[in-house]
């Protein structure tokens, strides 16, 4: 028993080292004086200041923030409706189709989604004149489509784990379906909506492949700028950018964990 526990500990610590060492080294070398990312030349923050002067990067950041927040919000609305339809509205014609369409974008290779949506946009432009050319709008539509899948799954699992007695009580007390949804169901699934939105935001903010297909000229998103630079090799200002992004995410996750542990402690009391 003991040896198995030791084996597990060693294997798991190796696993965690594998997960974190590259990120730690990335962060360390973002403070490197030398332009060679891999040779230590003394402490410096010059790569961070050079980020501030990079106008293309700033424009791309703004684009990415717009695309990610709009498509995360749209995906949350659509994903919630899809989850409600699949869990709360009984059986209907096309239910299998809907649940299939909702989950397949999660595993569908990005290149296929990107190519197919671009070809759709071009065909639609030829037929009805909309969308006229590629723009941030086309990126938003594409991102909403694949982010919606994740929101649906998150909300669906929350809905199916939910205690139904509250809703039955509301119905017994005369709530109409509409007020039932807005007064009872919605407040109960808000945590799932928040985590679904955050997940959708990160996925959209992170996407390179789909955006590359459907973006118009001059609508580069942040990953597209990073990729075009990184493709030529490692560069210290990307390390600095990565460090900033990773710190923001780490901070967010820490706050979330702190919140969860606080509320679970409160429940015990």
């Amino acid at each position: 028993m003991k040896s198995r526990a030791n084996f597990l500990m060693i294997a798991a610590s190796l696993g965690f080292a594998f997960l974190y060492l590259p990120i730690i080294s990335l962060v360390i070398f973002s403070f490197n004086e030398s332009k060679l990312v891999t040779v230590w030349g003394g402490f410096s923050t010059k790569w961070y200041t050079s980020l501030l002067e990079n106008e293309a990067l700033k424009d791309a950041l703004v684009n990415s923030l717009i695309v990610a927040s709009v498509s995360a919000s749209l995906a949350t609305v659509l994903g919630t409706i899809a989850a409600l339809s699949l869990t709360r509205l009984g059986n209907f014609r096309g239910k299998t189709l809907l649940s299939g369409m909702v989950t397949s974008p999660m595993v569908m290779p990005d290149v296929i989604i990107g190519l197919s949506l671009l070809l759709l946009f071009v065909a639609m432009e030829g037929l009805i004149g909309w969308p006229a050319g590629r723009s941030l709008t086309t990126i938003i539509i594409a991102h909403t489509t694949f982010c919606m899948a994740y929101v649906t799954v998150v909300v669906q699992s929350r809905l199916s784990n939910m205690d139904e007695s509250l809703q039955e009580a509301a119905l017994d007390l005369g709530a109409k379906p509409f007020s039932l949804f807005f007064l009872i169901t919605l407040p109960l699934i808000i945590p799932a909506l928040v985590s679904g939105w955050l997940l959708a935001f990160t996925l959209s903010f992170d996407d390179l492949v789909i955006a590359s297909f459907v973006a118009g000229p001059g609508n580069s998103t942040l990953p597209m700028i990073i990729f075009s630079k990184v493709r030529l090799g490692v560069s210290p200002d990307i390390n600095a950018l990565a460090t900033i992004m990773i710190s923001i995410v780490a901070l967010g996750v820490l706050v979330a964990i702190w919140n969860i542990s606080r509320s679970s402690k409160r429940k015990k009391v």
Binding site: P22, L26, V230, V234, I238, N239, A242, I246, G252
Partner: peptide, 13 residues
């Protein structure tokens, strides 16, 4: 939750 692209990039270095 951190960028996929940047995680791949970390391995380049």
């Amino acid at each position: 939750w951190t960028s996929f692209l940047l995680r791949v990039y970390a391995w380049m270095g």
